[in-house]
């Protein structure tokens, strides 16, 4: 799946100082409702999987079946868009074997539970993820201590952790570093912050924070609004 990696939305990190988020760090995608946060997160997951990594996908809103069907739809679109042959469903098998879905329904999510589940994966299944995708965390109501806890977990287990944050049209708050609401007050916890914006010519990814690098290259990556693949 080299051809996917070359057009994955994570290409934006080629422009970052370390070219990756890196283990023990938090990354976040900020976007308004309906722009495609979940799709972008799944692309990040697929990018890791096709680089022979393992991922844990944590969903706080949808059950595993829905998450799985998101992956299936996005993968099918990829196969079509990149004209890949997958007659024996080998890539699908790779996805199934490299991905673990953890869903926490009806407010069942807490850090202790996540830690316990990750321990179980490691000890009982020898499943050591390289990345954790956390979709559906409400940044507006979640306390800072939870983000701090997530950072600790990512360090403890040695994976990178990607989240998505919902921004609003009517809230234009941003801090002096240009990081927008709702991440503006906790941006120090994140190593990579990416804003996802829908515009008439496509979906744009813009790097708002690049590790400790004070100067961020003012470049963006344009994605196909249907496939979320980068338009080179």
């Amino acid at each position: 799946m080299k051809n996917f990696i070359s057009v994955s939305p994570l290409k934006i990190l080629d422009k970052s100082s370390r070219k990756e988020l890196g283990p023990g760090n938090l990354g976040v995608l900020i976007a308004r409702a309906g722009v495609g946060k979940t799709a972008c997160l799944i692309h990040i997951a697929l990018d890791r999987i096709f680089r022979q990594g393992k991922i844990v996908h944590v969903s706080l809103e949808e059950g595993p079946e829905k998450v799985m069907s998101y992956y299936n739809v996005i993968y099918s679109d990829l196969v079509k868009a990149l004209n890949i042959e997958d007659s024996n469903d080998e890539n699908r098998m790779i996805i199934d074997r490299s991905r673990m879905i953890l869903a926490y329904l009806h407010q069942s999510f807490d850090l202790d539970r996540l830690r316990l589940n990750l321990n179980n994966l490691q000890e009982k299944l020898d499943f050591k993820p390289d990345a954790l995708i956390l979709d559906g965390l409400d940044f507006e109501t979640t306390e800072t201590s939870v983000f701090e806890g997530l950072k600790q977990i990512s360090q403890q287990f040695g994976f990178e952790l990607w989240l998505s944050a919902l921004s609003h049209r009517h809230i234009s708050d941003a801090n002096e570093r240009g990081v927008v609401y709702p991440v503006n007050k906790i941006d120090y916890l994140f190593s990579i912050i990416i804003q996802v914006q829908a515009e008439s010519s496509g979906v744009f990814l813009r790097l708002l924070k690049d590790h400790d690098n004070a100067i961020i290259s003012d470049t963006s990556v344009r994605l196909d609004p249907n496939t979320f693949l980068s338009l080179v």
Partner: peptide
């Protein structure tokens, strides 16, 4: 009992797809 069940499936050549917590 999540861990115990995961082990038991793993021992049976099983592939765990997901784990959903509810209450």
């Amino acid at each position: 009992f999540q861990g115990n069940v995961m082990s038991s499936i793993n021992q049976r050549r099983g592939l765990i797809i997901s784990s959903a917590e509810d209450g």
